[in-house]
């Protein structure tokens, strides 16, 4: 018995140490990038910066936010995140409500039509040709329309609605509320926890997307997003700082203060901070949403 408890103690110490190390491995790259972004550009080139800036400066951030291209890209990122999330959450919830109504005659048909799409995908080129034919190439709406409803969202919300007490919805109908009114006034407010999960997942998807920008709108700088601008910088990371300066329209004076290395770090922080700030607050919800939608045990 005594021997076992000694083993337990050893395990305990190892376990805490290992998990603490895991946190270091997870966080270090972010803190390192943050340190570089807050360090004077020319000084960063000497290397050797780890967790703390050596020569503190907010020059990099000033430069990034003065850059018209980046400001515009940030705006597009915000737009697609806000509009895309609102559209997806509303539409998914509405369709989920209709297929949760047991008496709805099209319930089975609609459910199957959506679920079948989990089993196949038209493919890159056929989808590209479709977007072109729909005149969505070269348009902001190519970020919104293809993602109006996600099957995963639909199923998670439907499961949640089906778990709500029927009596609440009955009371709505007795008051003479139509289906839309019942959905809008009664079901939607009750669904807030699951909608928070869906909204977070959609917002993360929208904010982090770059491939659709690359595929459909790479020739139009006015439709570029923050992630795509960062991607371009990363792919050209071996290019000289001269290319970097010519890539940006700012005056040479401002450009000489910053280096591609520090701009890259700064852009990385700007591109990841919004989601990093939001998710801890919604943790309670998405942990639940994941377990409802992931597996039905």
């Amino acid at each position: 018995m005594k021997h076992a408890s000694f083993g337990d103690k050893v395990f305990e110490v190892c376990n805490y140490t290992f998990l603490a190390l895991l946190m270091v491995v997870t966080l270090y790259p972010f803190l390192n990038t943050l340190a570089y972004s807050l360090n004077a550009g020319l000084d960063s080139l000497k290397g050797g910066i780890h967790l703390w800036p050596r020569e503190f400066s907010i020059q990099n951030y000033k430069f990034v936010f003065r850059e018209a291209t980046i400001l515009h890209a940030t705006m597009i990122s915000v737009f697609r995140t806000v509009i895309g999330t609102a559209v997806t959450v509303f539409c998914s919830a509405m369709v989920a409500y209709t297929i949760s109504r047991q008496e709805y005659v099209l319930r089975k048909f609609i459910t199957i039509a959506f679920i079948l799409t989990m089993y196949f995908y038209g493919g890159l080129i056929p989808v590209f040709l479709l977007m072109r034919d729909l005149h969505l190439v070269g348009s902001f709406w190519v970020y919104i329309f293809p993602g109006v409803i996600g099957v995963f969202n639909l199923i998670v919300i439907r499961s949640f609605i089906e778990g709500l007490p029927e009596s609440i919805m009955e009371s709505g109908r007795i008051d003479g509320a139509g289906d839309f009114r019942t959905f809008w006034n009664i079901v939607l407010p009750l669904c807030l926890p699951v909608l928070a999960t869906v909204a977070l997942f959609t917002a993360v998807y929208q904010w982090n997307s770059w491939f659709d920008v690359f595929l459909y709108n790479s020739s139009d700088i006015n439709l570029s997003t923050l992630q795509y601008e960062l991607m371009k910088i990363l792919q050209n990371s071996n290019a000289s700082s001269a290319t970097m300066e010519s890539g940006f329209s700012n005056s040479g004076a401002a450009a000489s203060m910053v280096t591609p290395l520090s701009i890259r770090a700064t852009m990385t922080i700007v591109a990841s901070v919004p989601m990093i700030i939001v998710y801890p607050f919604l943790q309670k919800y998405f942990v639940k949403g994941m377990t409802v939608g992931g597996v039905k045990g």
Partner: peptide, 15 residues
């Protein structure tokens, strides 16, 4: 440990 899930692959690849 959830943090890296919320960053894009662009950011992750840079890191």
């Amino acid at each position: 440990s959830y943090l890296p899930h919320f960053i894009s692959w662009v950011v992750a690849a840079g890191i």
